[in-house]
Design a binder for these strands. Structure first.
Length: 709
RNA sequence: GGGCGGCUAGCUCAGCUGGUUAGAGCGUCUCGUUUACACCGAGAAGGUCGGGGGUUCGAACCCCUCGCCGCCCA
């Protein structure tokens, strides 16, 4: 047994931590009994020699062949012990001979069993030397005894050397004390038998690990499982349901009454029984959690409704301790695996990747982070980083970024409020007519779909990415900007429609974001609640948005994409040519399809506001001094006249031409490859042809502009 | 020794079943008194996707191999 001398209890293999420590190899000489020489053994634990009952050598080790069967006289103790042949002795290690202490080493125990060696226990429960050792050692702590054994060997002239080594020493995971292999009777669970159906449940998909690869960890342990020691010599815990009769006969039963009944049957009369004083391993009790909390063994309604549970969320560090054991117990006692899905999340580390620990002082207290950045920011950060990797490096700048995100949303909501964007009773998003509103409706649909799908797939990081982008980069950056000229304009119908649409989008945003950032969304929900809210009450009780396919609007999408491209490219031009921010040059469109022209005309106000231009005109050729660019296939020019310096403009054009040329080169090469044409799917080939044509058209335009300059 | 995971921009990370101009946030640089927001806005720079082979018309992604880093079990 693994014995923890600090808590004086047995512990299971899983509760033993192997720690690498600096130690020594002591080479001890054991004289042969016939006086013909000595045999040297090396050990990291000299004190255990007090319990040695043999010396083992490898059967094929030529050095010791003639010694097998002889005896050595154990120094200090004076006991003669045999030299035996066993494969366990490694000729490569040390002298090739190894001392055997069956009562205090797991490997030696096996050797002892094979050779029927006596097992001499030399330690008491507190790991002090007991009465099986020479008088001088009795009552000594094991580490004191070690010093004394070494000193005595030295005094006897039998110490043959000391080496310094690093080696693994077992420690109790709770006590931190060095664990002793110790002979004691304990209760075991036949884990192998319980594991078989628990393995099958995961193999068959009855229970699914998410991320999936964690099932490998589970299988690895379950398939190599060892008997589980479940008795503990502790005060607190479920008491072991075993009763002893006066003759030591054991009655295992659910209750004392049943045990007595069984005893009556066995003895033919009443007997006094003594219940085992040990309690069960806390993980044994924890393994009962999925069903015992629901009233089991009674067949309660809760048990019927909540067992098996849909998803268990936990960390990979307790897959063995807890998950595996719940699986085994759940199947054993109910016939069903306790969970359909086990979601394993990463472990949080500090910004340098080190495990947080109190002694290192690198622990980030979540409550302090909440005080500093808010609970929503922390939640959003953890959710965003809950990817497939094993650990999360929590860093403040990241949390700060998501705190800013919350502020951004807050301000966007404030904008809506200031502009009277209030939910309208009976508003139907399907009925909106303005391009901007049709477009944002479609984008909201896309975002809602993506977030929903991500949550269902446990891709929580993907859900946050979608939310972040939609809210900040689409709703705030574009929709709100597009809405400004409309809301400040004269068209009352468009204003009303845009207000209602904005309110609807915001409402949808609050719902989608609520699981990740419940506080800010609930607060905003309450603040925007008073007027016309179609679904009153708390946001947390509001239904999840399920939007119809009909909200998609490819035409509006194409129109707004053109507008966005025209503005983005235009901004780039302005910035590179150092056009003064306050200047409002005209934008002249020189080449566009009919649809593009309609779209640009319809959104002239929106472009004017976001690109900060004067008027939008359509002409065959750009005026002198205008700076041309291409957006989504349409050609346009900013009339910046004397605002621009020519060298900068030439450099800009040359850069754009080079970009196009690179693309042409790459794509042309691909298309020139016969194998590509022959083997790639037709749509991929067509796509590349289209791409080449566009790039060539763009390049030609840019060259013409450069030439005119 | 066995198993698992990672190595992508200065940093932290996305990148689904092989076809994108390899993305985001932070940081950096330039510019900004645009009536929600400077916890902001606009623009820009920055990557031979750990090394080497291979499969394929085509590889960050598949296979082999080597190298680091980390975790678990011995």
């Amino acid at each position: 047994m693994n014995w923890d001398p600090h808590f004086q209890t047995a512990i299971s293999d899983l509760e033993v931590e192997q720690r690498e420590v600096e130690g020594h190899y002591w080479h001890l000489a054991y004289p042969l009994e016939d006086g013909s020489g000595e045999i040297i053994v090396a050990t990291t634990r000299p004190e255990t020699m007090l319990g040695d009952t043999a010396v083992a050598v490898h059967p094929s080790d030529e050095r010791y062949k003639t010694l097998i069967g002889k005896c050595v006289r154990l120094p200090i103790v004076g006991r003669p012990i045999p030299i035996i042949a066993d494969d366990y002795a490694d000729p490569e290690k040390g002298s090739g001979a190894v001392k055997i202490t069956p009562a205090h080493d797991f490997n030696d125990f096996k050797v002892g069993q094979r050779h029927r060696l006596p097992m001499i226990n030399i330690l008491d429960a507190a790991a002090r030397i007991n009465d099986n050792a020479p008088v001088a050692y009795r009552g000594l702590d094991r580490f004191e005894a070690r010093k004394r054994v070494v000193a005595e060997f030295e005094a006897l002239g039998l110490l043959r050397g000391i080496e310094t080594t690093r080696h693994a020493v077992p420690h109790g995971d709770r006590s931190g004390a060095v664990v002793e292999p110790w002979l004691t009777d304990q209760w075991y669970v036949d884990a192998k038998t319980l594991a078989a159906p628990a393995i099958a449940a995961v193999e068959s998909g009855e229970t699914v690990f998410e991320p999936h690869h964690w099932e490998k960890t589970y299988f690895e342990w379950m398939r190599n499982i060892e008997p589980w020691c479940v008795s503990r010599q502790l005060w607190w815990g479920h008491r072991i349901p075993a009763w002893y009769g006066p003759d030591g006969h054991i009655f295992v039963a659910e209750t004392a009454e049943e045990a007595h009944a069984a005893a009556y049957e066995y003895y033919g009369h009443d007997e006094d029984l003594r219940q085992d004083e040990d309690v069960l391993d806390t993980w044994f009790s924890s393994a009962l959690w999925p069903f015992s909390t629901l009233g089991w063994p009674a067949r309660t309604e809760d048990l019927a409704r909540f067992y098996p549970t849909h998803t268990l969320v936990t960390g990979f560090d307790i897959i063995f301790f807890w998950v595996a054991r719940m699986m085994m117990m759940g199947i054993h006692f109910t016939g069903q695996a306790p969970f359909q899905r086990v979601f394993i999340n990463a472990l949080i580390r500090d910004a340098e990747g080190a495990k947080m620990s109190k002694s290192k002082g690198n622990v980030m207290d979540p409550l302090e982070l909440v005080d500093e950045y808010g609970a929503d920011a922390l939640r959003f950060t953890l959710t965003a980083m809950s990817g497939q990797a094993r650990d999360i490096r929590l860093s403040k700048p990241r949390i700060e970024g998501y705190r800013n995100f919350g502020t951004k949303l807050w301000n966007a909501a404030r904008f809506c409020q200031m502009n009277g964007c209030v939910a309208v009773e009976g508003f139907d998003p399907a009925s909106v007519t303005h391009t901007v509103n049709r477009w944002v409706r479609g984008e909201t649909l896309k975002a809602a779909r993506e977030v929903t799908a991500a949550l269902e797939a446990c891709a929580f990081d993907a859900a946050t990415t979608t939310l972040y982008r939609f809210i900040w980069n689409l709703f705030c950056d574009w929709f709100v900007e597009f809405a400004k000229p409309i809301l400040g304009g004269e068209d009352e119908a468009a204003k009303a429609e845009t207000r209602a649409t904005a309110a609807w989008v915001l409402e949808t945003i609050l719902k989608l974001l609520h699981p990740v950032a419940p506080f800010i969304t609930e607060e905003l929900w309450a603040q925007t609640a008073p007027e016309g809210r179609p679904c009153p009450g708390l946001l947390i009780t509001a239904p999840w948005p399920e939007l119809p396919d009909a909200y998609a609007d490819p035409l509006a999408e194409a129109e707004i994409e053109l507008v966005i491209a025209a503005v983005t490219e235009g901004r780039s031009v302005r910035s590179e040519l150092n056009v003064p921010p306050g200047a409002r040059p005209d934008l002249i469109v020189t080449e566009a399809t009919e649809a593009q022209e309609r779209a640009l005309r319809a959104n002239a106000a929106v472009i004017g506001h976001t690109l900060r231009i004067g008027t939008l005109r359509f002409e065959q050729t750009p005026p002198n001094g205008a700076v041309a660019y291409v957006a989504a296939g349409a050609a346009m020019a900013l009339d910046v006249k004397n605002l621009v310096d020519l060298p900068a403009e030439r450099a800009r054009l040359a850069k754009d031409i080079a970009t196009q040329a690179l693309d042409i080169d790459r794509t042309a090469k691909k298309l020139a490859n016969v194998d590509f044409i022959g083997r790639a799917p037709p749509e991929v080939v067509a796509e590349n042809r289209e791409r080449l044509a566009t790039a060539e058209r763009n390049k030609a335009r840019l060259m013409a502009i450069l030439a005119r300059l």
